[in-house]
């Protein structure tokens, strides 16, 4: 097991009170496998990812409970100094918006070399050679010249490739991709996804792929975990969940994705809004928006019920 997250709780102090952004999340990722983490904005996907790196916003964010086991080592117990040796080298992350992910005042080479230097040591030779290598890995044309370019001289897609190169420069085992294509033009989204998949296969990466788009999940992921209001409500192999989603929220999410083959007059949507995280309803958090809701749903949070070998859903209506 490459990554094993157990019962992770992360809280954020905001001006409205403490928010349980990640509230008892568990999942695992094998080497070479891709787990999709799906949910609406504000469901806690990004917070989960940042928790793994121990980079929650300071000083508001805090991991209050749980374990993050990377190759069996618990990251939650590590010191900041130890974490720095893990970030970039063993876990890396690609952020959502390439326009702002790169520092505008340094050239690209500088920013890649910097990532390499942290892990290979100040005196390591041939850092620029390796940086060129890193760019070649993400299929950037004329990498040698690109190293001297500044971010504003590149297109969005190119920048996101550079961010990928930085993330992969130190050959990590686990890559977190946080909606890496959301900010890209539709035409280059697919290109980028294919690139990620290709690199993953070559490097044997484990990947945590965060998205809100089930179309991308189908293309990229082996397994998927659906998050709602800080908790995972359903998880399982992509194939199985696509065939038969068991949680009403998963079903609703999938139904709201437009499909080419079906002729629909109006896309179904989920009524209401996700609950405010500082005022969560007592029972199932999806209850206020759920069409199958009954009394018990409003009172008690449902336990995760196993359906088949690795498929589980947290809903009272799911019979094992």
């Amino acid at each position: 097991m490459l990554l094993d997250v157990k019962d992770l709780h992360a809280h954020l102090r905001t001006r409205w009170g403490t928010v349980k952004a990640v509230d008892g999340v568990s999942f695992s990722i094998e080497a070479g496998e891709t787990l999709g983490l799906v949910g609406e904005s504000g469901s806690g996907k990004t917070m989960t990812a940042l928790s793994l790196l121990r980079l929650l916003p300071e000083p508001a964010g805090r991991i209050v409970n749980g374990q993050v086991l990377l190759d069996g080592e618990d990251l939650v117990a590590k010191s900041e100094r130890e974490m720095r040796r893990i970030r970039g080298r063993r876990i890396s992350m690609i952020l959502q918006d390439p326009q702002t992910s790169l520092n505008p005042v340094f050239n690209v080479g500088n920013q890649i070399v910097e990532a390499l230097r942290v892990h290979l040591g100040r005196r390591a030779n041939g850092l620029w050679k390796r940086a060129e290598e890193a760019l070649r890995r993400v299929k950037v044309a004329a990498p040698q010249e690109r190293l001297r370019s500044f971010p504003h001289q590149m297109s969005g897609g190119m920048k996101q490739r550079v961010v990928g190169a930085i993330a992969l420069a130190s050959e990590p085992k686990l890559l977190i991709a946080d909606e890496p294509t959301t900010a890209l033009d539709v035409t280059i989204q697919l290109q980028y996804l294919m690139l990620l998949k290709d690199v993953q296969a070559r490097m044997g990466l484990g990947m945590l792929f965060i998205t809100h788009d089930f179309g991308i999940v189908a293309r990229m992921c082996d397994r998927v975990a659906v998050m709602y209001a800080g908790r995972i409500v359903e998880s399982g192999p992509v194939r199985e969940i696509f065939k038969a989603p068991r949680h009403p929220y998963t079903a609703a999410l999938m139904a709201s994705v437009p499909r080419m083959e079906a002729r629909v007059h109006r896309l179904p949507s989920i009524d209401g809004q996700p609950p405010a995280l500082h005022r969560l309803p007592g029972g199932c958090r999806f209850a206020p928006r759920c069409s199958y809701v009954d009394e018990r749903c409003r009172l008690e949070y449902p336990p995760a019920v196993a359906i088949g070998r690795s498929h589980a859903a947290a809903c009272w209506k799911v019979a094992p």
Partner: peptide, 22 residues
Amino acid sequence: MAITTAPADVAVVDDAAPQREF
């Protein structure tokens, strides 16, 4: 309400974001 794309959930705690402070 349909599920739409919105900025990352980090925005919730972005203290630098202008907000009415009473």
